[in-house]
Amino acid sequence: MSTSSSAPISVRMGASDWAQLLLLSLIWGMSFFLIAIAVRGLPVLTVVAARVLVAAVVLWAYVLLSGRSIPRDPKLWLAFLVIGALNNVIPFSLISWGQTQIPSGLASILNAVTPLSTVLVTAMFLADERPTPAKIAGVVLGLGGVAIMMGLDTLAGHRLAILPQIAVLGATLSYACAGTFGRRFARMGIDPIVTAAGMVTGSSILLVPVALLIDGPPPVASVQAWGAVLIMGTICTGLAYVLYFNVLARAGATNISLVTFLVPVSAILLGWLFLEEELNAAHVFGMVTIAAGLLLIDGRLKLRRKG
């Protein structure tokens, strides 16, 4: 990852950026619900590989139909492989495996640590996203909010679920590295749609052979399971990453990571409505606490100085 800044970014997001971020949060919130359906009938690696493969087919079809050119630079394709691993292969695998043992709502809550991980990673690699006292305070406050939403009783009462929770937290670190690494595509002048297509293609190259080796040929499964995979590939991956790279280029890694605060809201509501998962006061209070932390990170809340 380069230590230099890429294209100039806006620390404060505009109305268009927030609108895309809100849409992205709804799409990714839906993905937690769909993962929970897919892993009931399909192996984890098969779900992840099929998801990125569907996204690659859909995005390249759009690239060709819209008259865009396919990049041929080997260095660019190597970068696609790297960001594919960081933004898809590693986190999708960790989250999908984690969701075989923990509820989708809890997985999305843990995923909300991503902005906090991003603040730490960008501090090391991006000169224009250095941590300020407000960002550091936001990290502490946000981590407290995540702890509230998880609940100490979750850690104490479900000891076997600790490893899946750690896996999802590991995914947030991978996302943070991906956001930092992904800043270079805007500097290179790559269209966000082409970047998204290249990334999921890199992910497919890495994942499909591994899934076939470990899981074998895709098994016969329910229409619901495969339908969930198709929706995830087309909307929750293909469309979502076009939005992701567009906001990343304009607002930076820290701001794009704020989407993971909004994701738990839609994911928990979907889990509550369709999967009979619990929605309680701790979730709401934790979300409010994380919101305050992320607003500090974004600069919309200011720390008062004495004197």
Rank of each mutant, 00 (worst) to 15 (best):
V208E: 06
Q224E: 15
P217F: 09
L78D: 02
A49M: 02
A291Q: 11
G286F: 02
F181T: 03
V48P: 00
A178T: 05
R68T: 04
Q99T: 02
A38R: 04
M232F: 08
S10N: 15
M232G: 01
G29I: 11
Q20A: 13
I148N: 00
M287T: 14
A7Y: 07
A211K: 00
T114M: 12
A282Y: 14
V63D: 03
N111K: 11
P133Q: 08
V247T: 10
E277G: 02
N246E: 11
R184M: 08
P264Y: 11
V89W: 07
T195E: 06
G307T: 11
I109D: 02
P192Y: 09
E276A: 15
V168S: 02
V47S: 01
L270T: 03
A38N: 00
A282M: 12
T114A: 14
S16Y: 07
L163E: 09
V119P: 01
N255S: 15
T234S: 13
G182H: 01
A292D: 11
P8G: 00
F245Q: 13
P74S: 06
A196P: 03
S257A: 15
R130S: 10
A49V: 07
V284E: 03
P209L: 12
A79D: 04
A167M: 15
I109A: 10
D73F: 07
I109Y: 02
S222L: 09
Y241Q: 06
G170S: 03
M1D: 08
L160Q: 15
V168R: 01
L116T: 14
A176K: 05
L24W: 05
K306F: 13
P219D: 07
I268Y: 03
L23S: 13
I90S: 01
D17A: 15
G144Q: 08
E277P: 00
W28E: 00
A85H: 08
L169M: 12
V263W: 03
L206T: 09
C236M: 06
L163M: 15
L270S: 01
L295D: 02
S222I: 14
P71S: 01
P219R: 13
R40N: 14
R130L: 08
L275W: 10
R250W: 01
A196V: 08
I136T: 08
F285N: 03
S104K: 02
V284M: 11
